[in-house]
């Protein structure tokens, strides 16, 4: 790849990219004011610093566990059990569908 084609490829990419960006910005300006933008703000993450005490003496910190020994008998038991086996031929298209939703 010589310098000239790199420069030309970048120039084309940047000019189309910037054109799309300003078109997007114009659309936003017409369609939304700032308070609309705020209303789109989804999940407020909880603050993690507070001064409450936990759930009494229900002893989250009082029992001993050792996952390298026999004490660890738990197995994952959430939504991971819903997944198809990794070798399953089904499941193609999921990422594509998600990408469409994102854009």
């Amino acid at each position: 790849m010589n310098k000239q084609t790199t420069a030309a490829a970048l120039a084309l990419a940047l000019s189309t990219g910037l054109a799309a960006l300003s078109a997007q910005a114009d659309e936003m300006k017409e369609g939304m004011d700032k308070s609309d933008m705020e209303k789109c703000f989804g999940v407020a993450m909880k603050g993690k610093n507070d001064c409450k005490a936990g759930a009494g003496t229900t002893c989250a910190g009082t029992s001993t566990h050792d996952y390298q020994g026999n004490a660890w008998s738990l197995v994952p038991a959430g939504t991971c059990t819903e997944t198809a086996s990794p070798t399953s031929p089904t499941g193609f298209g999921q990422l594509e569908a998600f990408e469409e939703k994102q854009s």
Binding site: T79, C80, E82, T83, P86, T90, Q94, L95
Partner: peptide, 18 residues
């Protein structure tokens, strides 16, 4: 997998090792 927990798609049809 993350998206499936945001109400976008399900875990069932995922190809995990993609």
């Amino acid at each position: 997998i993350w998206a499936a927990h945001q109400g976008r798609g399900t875990m069932k049809s995922l190809k995990i090792d993609q």
